[in-house]
């Protein structure tokens, strides 16, 4: 059957034919984090697996955030129901969910002819006290 895995900003996922995709943060996000003291980066994951193959994925943050802005920030990565739940207006260091597994099985291995993707959302939230 047909499989597809796509990751990106909400509404702008990019297909990953190899099955591995990345969402990056860099200088632009670091500047926002320093300026605002916090940062929320929503990530959308679209999964399709037709036939009787299920699809499972693992989310891996960097092993080392380095010694810069992100390295000195408090960082959380967690699933959210919608991108609206991944905004600095609704998040705070005190309101973060308990750490959960960084993996998901959006498509079970029961037979599926569905052509539409199963869409899931993740949130990277960082706070920095300057």
């Amino acid at each position: 059957g047909y499989q597809s895995f796509a990751v990106g900003a909400p509404g702008a996922t990019v297909p990953a034919p190899t099955g591995t995709a990345v969402r990056t943060v860099g200088p632009q996000e670091a500047a926002k984090l320093v300026r605002d003291g916090e940062l929320a980066v929503p990530v959308q994951v679209d999964s399709v697996s037709q036939g009787n193959k299920g699809l499972h994925y693992v989310v891996s943050p960097p092993e080392d955030w380095g010694s810069g802005v992100f390295g000195s920030a408090d960082i959380a990565l967690f699933p959210v129901a919608s991108p609206r739940d991944c905004r600095t207006e609704v998040l705070s260091p005190q309101s973060l969910p308990e750490p959960s597994g960084l993996e998901s099985t959006p498509v079970p291995s029961t037979y599926s002819t569905s052509t539409g993707p199963v869409t899931e959302h993740w949130c990277l939230y960082a706070s920095h006290d300057g």
Partner: peptide, 24 residues
Amino acid sequence: LDPAAEPVHAITFTSTTFRPGEQP
């Protein structure tokens, strides 16, 4: 801390498929 000197960090999403009876 200089945000302009921040390296690019990647959050990686790795998918696998599995068949019925297999552990995902």
